[in-house]
Structure formats: structure tokens, C-alpha cells
Design a binder for these strands. Structure first.
Lengths: 334, 334
DNA sequence: AGCATTTGGGAAAGCGCTTTCCAATCTAGG
DNA sequence: CCTAGATTGGAAAGCGCTTTCCCAAATGCT
């Protein structure tokens, strides 16, 4: 990657490096218009594009922000990523993306790369582990103390760092409350992995809601946060209860893709949703809005969440926590 | 973003900068083990993390690859992105992501940023315009002549640059052929924007297939490559034909999300799929696989395509074109 | 023991920019 | 017409690394 350098431009324009830099790369001092014009012309002729790496080194700020997601192909994360991308673009920051599909250790390595690249900020989307990796926490703390901004999405990871927290508990509880209000009385829960706090929060919201509404908790089964996780959980729920006992039960899944998996499992068992079993999800993934039966769920403004997080990371405001909560969307499935 | 520097490590270890560099950041020369150990210890104690920017400057290679997608929240692109991400990670390259939601001009600015950041390679996913922006082409050519690698996904943009091409034409044609083989005879096409070559290729494949199979082309309507585009196109198709005439027609959409939009439109008009109208898509988006009625479509190995593209970009092989074609998946919708 | 080689650490020159000083020029006030 | 003060361009010192040389010490041979 060789390319035209500033000094070539300066030479061609017959000015010094300093002047060329001042003209081309925004500085306090604006050289006289005549000179500036010469420099601009030279730059254009040579096709000069500033080397962001060198600028970063000289300015000690890279203009890059790092986003770590669990899986970019998961619509939950890709929607958040979209929001982040928009905000970064508006702030003319470049987005570095890393996937951490293998838990804390891969979050750690993603963070390390970002640290190496000296991103101005790091955003972490994806649930914190209930018992977080010490190494990771240290790394993040050091990053912050070196002046890096950290914003986590979902819940706060560090005491006083930025975060866009999501009221998972409240959303689940509200969903149960409303469903109970429509007369449903027997609830089962397809929970996510029990080591993720997002999953645990949604579960505990469910339990709180069940208690508050005075309805019955038929069963809780844990599984992966994926379509397959939902599918398996649904099957094991059926096994646990006996297929007959499933009739009339409202099955809440920890997220939409699990709900989809569950519905597919129920269907393969000859159960129709919502006639035989009711199912609801969480997140309100945009791509799934045309699904039939339309999924009752808790809508999270995913894109906005990403946008907000990036704003927090890029704003000059000191680190801040912003809470967003979901709204229950009653559709056909429950 | 201040942090521990190599010279601090060197000082603490009591060696020179050169030695410290050789020990920590892979070089030909391996200092004696005793010394190396001292350096490593010092680095660990101080929590040294090499500054990738500075390394990039010194080595004149950044280890970053840029990916431009149309819209990261679109499952088509996020799936490709996943493949790219995997390949980059395996090659320990960092991924820069940019969205180009506003056509060629935004592709241009994305590319410019990547050029500024001196990414080792640029991957462009998302269809080329039928009449591509001259400026863009020049920028890409200059990038390549400066030693940057370019890989486009979908079709080749530059004469001899890397590309993972997709046999859109063949896929569409094959889909028509197979559907005609099941006895369907009247076909309509919901095409994408007529300025994108992907859209045009799929359309021309459709036409070729119709001709070859000797079936009837009822209508072709153009719309956006989105769910809403599909919805609207379906409505205008109905308007054009008269709702009655739609019965028995097989409506092929230029991609899956358009197909979903179309089905939703038909449904709102009281038409049931596939009983009244048949619908098929293209791409086989993973998230949509549980959709009911299950979508007949042309499966594209999206993730693999992304992976392949990144391999081409990162491999030492000179730029190469790799073609992938889809396979027709018959399900319920058509 | 004496010489030619190899080995391995360090000094220093960049990589491409930004930014602080400096010095020269210009402006305005007396 | 002279001087204090404001402008403005340029020289040069970094930013944090890599890598080429150079030189001293260690090694292998005769």
C-alpha cells in the first residue's frame, strides 16, 4: 500500500510540509487562500489521500470505534450494528467489527485487538457472563484508564462506564402480566443459557410476572439463545410435560429466534400455534415481522439502541448510562 | 489513548528498542532466550500492547480489510459479513465495516475511508450499478495500482480484479425451468431496481428460463430490493393484472425479502399462497427458513461466499475470480 | 595461537503525519 | 518613519514502531 504522501504534495505545491498539512487536514491555522489553493490543486492532481495511520500516530487518536457482537449474522446483533454504523458514520468514525462467538475468551481477544488498534471507543453488544472473566475486566479497566471509552449494550459491565441498559426483567414481567390479563393461566419458559445475565434477567422477570399475576409456572427449560436452542428446548419441554399437558400452555421464549425454533418444534409434533400452544418471543426482530402466526413479543428498539450506544461512546459527555425498555406487542401467537 | 510503549518495556528490561521489538513483535532475528525472557517479563508487568497504528506505519501494511455492504441489517449482507469476518479472524486481520445505503456515491465514500486507512484489501458486497460511477472506478483502480487488493462480491467490477461472482442468471433460469416442470405455466416477475446488475441478471435469467420452458410471461414489475419493494410490486402487479387474473400465477421475486413482502401483500388481498398464487424467492436467507409457507427459492451459500471472498483478498494468490451458483430449493410456496 | 566467520545487541534512520517554536513579514498606532 | 503586536510560512521535533547497518564478542578452522 504505497501512495502519494503529503511531502510530495508539498513539494509539488512549493510549500512546506507544515503548510500542506494545515491546508489539507483541518488545523487551527488557515494558510492564506492563494497558498491554500495551490496546495489543494497539487493534492488533487496527485490524488493525495491522507494516511489515517500516520495521522492517528501523530494525533494520538485514531477515529475508529470497535464493536464486538456475538454473531453478526444474528438479526439481533446486525440490527444493533446498523445503529452503531449509522452513528459512527455521522460522526465520521470508522467502525471495526469483531465477532465473539465463543464467550468471554473471544470477547477478550476482540477487545485486545481493539486495544492494539487504539480505537477511541469500544462497544460491546452481547450479554455479560454472570461470572465475568477477570482478565477481560482488567483489560477493559486498563483501556478506560488509558483514556478509552467503553460502552456496553444490555447491561453495565464496569461500575462507572458507559452503558445502554435494557430492561429485560421488566419486559418479561410485563409480557406475563398482559398475557395473564387475556386469561392465560399456565406458563412455561424457554430460557437462554443460564450463564448469561440477559438470559437470567429475562427469566427472573418471567418469574416475577408469574408470581405477581398469580398464574402457574409449568416449567422452565434452559437452552441456547438460537433457533436450535428454542427447538430443542421446546422438545424437551414436551418430553418433560407429556405432549398432552402442553395444550393450553403459554410458552415464553427468551428471544424471538428461540420462539421461532419452538414453534417449528411444536408444529412437527402436530401442535398448532396458537390454537394448541401459545408462544411468545422477545426482541421483535424486524426480519421476523412477517412470520405467521405473527409473533407476540416484547419490542426492543434495537437499531436505536445501537445508535444510542455509539452516541454515548463518541459524545463528549462523560460516560453515562442510558436505560431503554421494551414494549409488549400482542399479535397472534399468544 | 495513551498506553505503555515499547521503549518503556525496553528500558525496564534493560535492552535496546531494537531488541525489544525483535522479541515481542515477530521478526526474523530471535534474540537469545535469556534476553527474550527478560523482555517478555517486562512487557507483561507493564501490560504492553503493541500499537497497531505505529506498526502499520513502520511496516507499511495495516492488517486490516475493509468490507462495504449495502445494509448490514439486511440478512443477505449480514450473512456474507459473517463469512468475511470468520476468514479475516482466522487470518488475524481486522475487519472494517462500512455501509453504503445510498448507492454508488456512498460506496465511493466508503472506499475512500478504506483507502485513507490503508486497508490491505477492500471487499465490496452489493451489486454494481449497471452504469457505474467513473470516480469510483478510478478510485478502485488507483487503489489496486498502489498494491491494494480488491474483491467484489456478486460480479466483477474491474477487468482483472478479484471477484466472487454469482450465477444469478443461471439460478433464475433454473428456477423457472424446474417450476415449469411441475406444471406451472404462467409466470410473473418482481424485479429489483433496474439499475443494479444483480437485479438485471436475475431478470434476464427469468426471461431466458421462460422462453426456454415455453411458458407465459405474465408481467414484470420493478421495485426496491426490500420487503417493502416486494409488497408494493405485488400490489402493482395485482393492479396491473386485475386480482382475478392473479390466480394460478407463479410470482418470482428477485430475492427472498421481496418474496416475503409480496406474500404479505397477497395475503392482505385475500389470496392464499400457494393455493391462489405461488411465490418464490432467491437467496435462501437462513432467518427465513422457518417461514410459513416455506419459501421455494434458490439457495446461495452466502456465508461461504463471504468466506471465499475474504480468502481471495487475503491469499497470496494473485487476484482470481471464483464463481458460485445457486441451487433451487423447492418448498411449499411454489 | 591467529585468522576468518558467524552471532547478536544497539544506534539510528525512517514510516507519514501533526504541532510547537522561530523568524520573517505585515499591520496599525503614535 | 519607527516600534509593538499580530500574521504567516517553515524547520524540526516528535508519535511508536521496524529494520538496516555497524560493531563487539563468540565461534570455527587451520
Amino acid at each position: 500500500m504505497s501512495a502519494v504522501t503529503l511531502s510530495q504534495v508539498a513539494r509539488q505545491a512549493g510549500v512546506s510540509l507544515a503548510t500542506a498539512s494545515r491546508v489539507l487536514n483541518g488545523s487551527q491555522r488557515r494558510p492564506a487562500e492563494g497558498i491554500a489553493e495551490r496546495v489543494r490543486t497539487a493534492a488533487l492532481e496527485l490524488g493525495y489521500v491522507a494516511n489515517a495511520q500516520a495521522q492517528a500516530l501523530a494525533r494520538s487518536s485514531t477515529g475508529m470505534v470497535g464493536l464486538v457482537v456475538h454473531d453478526i449474522a444474528d438479526p439481533y446483533f446486525s440490527t444493533i450494528a446498523r445503529g452503531v454504523q449509522h452513528a459512527s458514520q455521522e460522526a465520521s468514525r470508522q467502525l471495526l467489527l469483531a465477532a465473539a462467538e465463543a464467550g468471554d475468551s473471544s470477547v477478550f481477544s476482540a477487545v485486545s485487538t481493539f486495544v492494539a488498534h487504539r480505537t477511541d471507543a469500544i462497544l460491546i453488544a452481547g450479554s455479560r457472563s454472570v461470572r465475568p472473566d477477570e482478565r477481560l475486566i482488567h483489560e477493559l479497566q486498563r483501556y478506560r484508564s488509558n483514556g478509552g471509552r467503553l460502552v456496553t449494550i444490555g447491561q453495565a459491565w464496569l461500575e462507572d462506564s458507559g452503558a445502554v441498559t435494557i430492561d429485560n426483567r421488566g419486559g418479561s414481567a410485563e409480557l406475563v402480566r398482559i398475557l395473564a390479563g387475556t386469561g392465560q393461566t399456565r406458563f412455561a419458559y424457554l430460557a437462554g443459557p443460564d450463564h448469561l445475565v440477559t438470559a437470567e434477567d429475562r427469566l427472573s422477570g418471567f418469574r416475577g410476572g408469574v408470581q405477581a399475576a398469580g398464574v402457574e409456572e409449568v416449567a422452565v427449560v434452559h437452552g441456547a439463545f438460537t433457533r436450535e436452542g428454542g427447538h430443542q428446548s421446546a422438545r424437551s419441554l414436551a418430553g418433560q410435560l407429556g405432549a398432552g399437558m402442553l395444550r393450553g400452555v403459554t410458552v415464553l421464549a427468551a428471544n424471538d429466534v428461540m420462539a421461532i425454533g419452538a414453534i417449528s418444534a411444536f408444529r412437527s409434533m402436530g401442535l398448532e400455534v396458537p390454537r394448541d400452544v401459545r408462544v411468545a418471543g422477545f426482541d421483535d426482530i424486524p426480519t421476523l415481522r412477517d412470520y405467521v402466526p405473527a409473533l407476540t413479543t416484547v419490542r426492543l428498539p434495537l437499531e436505536e439502541i445501537g445508535y444510542l450506544a455509539a452516541e454515548l461512546a463518541l459524545g463528549q459527555a462523560s460516560d453515562i448510562v442510558r436505560n431503554v425498555s421494551g414494549t409488549v406487542i400482542l399479535r397472534e401467537s399468544a
